[in-house]
Design a protein around this nucleic acid. Sequence first.
DNA 1: CCTACCGGGCTCTGCCATGACG
DNA 2: CGTCATGGCAGAGCCCGGTAGG
Length: 381
Amino acid sequence: MAQRQILSLLLPVRRCGLQPVMSRSHCQNINTISRFCSSRQMNSEPPPVHPENGSLLENLSSMGVDLTMARRRQPGVLRKLLTNEQGLAHFLKSKGADQETIASIISRFPRSITRSCQHLEERWQLWRNIFKSDSEVVGILSRSPESFFRSSDNENLEKNIAFLRSLGITPKDLHRLLTTAPRTFSNSVELNRNMVELLQGICLNLGGKDQEHFARTIISRNLYILIRSTNRVKANVDFLLSSLSLSNTEALVLLQSHGAQILDLSHESLKRNFKNLQSKLQSLGCSEAHFKKMILNYSLVLFISSELLNEKLDTLIDAGVHILQIVQKPKVLDFSLVIIKQRLHDLNSLGYDFQKNGIAVLDSSKKRFHAKLERLGSPEE
DNA sequence: CCTACCGGGCTCTGCCATGACG
DNA sequence: CGTCATGGCAGAGCCCGGTAGG
């Protein structure tokens, strides 16, 4: 971890070094110095190994590509002699992408210009089998060029689609999956299979009978699961099961409902949020059983960062809500702090009694809440 | 008509490290 | 060595409405 921090500190320096002007003058300095030092070194040191391809740069530049960005991301591509930027641009244009989108795609994922037209056509068709229109695909591409272009293995993509279908994932969920987490489809089939097997294994360990249904449900509930590492998911599941001492049945129910989503959290965040909620509830006089109950009622409270969660809890309590009401109905924490404050204010000004009337009113859509407010406000009696 | 329950929609990429390969 | 493909990571919610059942 410390190493990571050091690396990220060094990063800006390294990035500067990649700027053309900087590196050239830097090399000149080195050459000058080495000339004084020894002639042998000079012979064995030809400056930049491969220069950037000037005509390629010109080409890209005229297409509106951000060369600085491209250079920072994949410098090697700019040195290549054979590229297919024109073919790519023509291809994307034929699918409905405008010039700006194309430039942005290349800027963010330069390697896209190394794909042949035939490759592009094949890959596009594979995606189109899942999407309804070209424009949908263009939308995903402009959002996440890397998802489409990072792998050049169309066969693997085909296998992936077949594999996911073989799990019994519905066409609708397959569509949601590719829309929401397109990276899933660039994973190797083995990687996806590992995750599915992990999930199925978890199900069996918990005494579940239908492990395929279990895996399918989790994927449908958490479309990002397949782009997480098995290490993370495993660590999170282990942590939840042991720290809440869940029964098998409780665990199966939790993981197949809202619990599927909190597997996404980085393991450290999950632990941090978990411990914060635990001690916060304790300080408010709740028992361990209350804590467990709250998570089982709505585990997504663990998604909320510690500070925000504490502030939401304090806000509710200050307005006269009892902590046990929140434990019973944690979904009220789902709303933004601003909305919560506003609603508490509105209700309090009408003399709403949370102890008497409950807090369910806080967990409703804007439309429904305002309808409710009007009913409360109109002096009907 | 009302509430409680439940699930869905939105969106989540852009970067780095590493191993394979030539 | 450079390049490519691929795995993995950090980051940390909010809102809406269908519908069953009173």
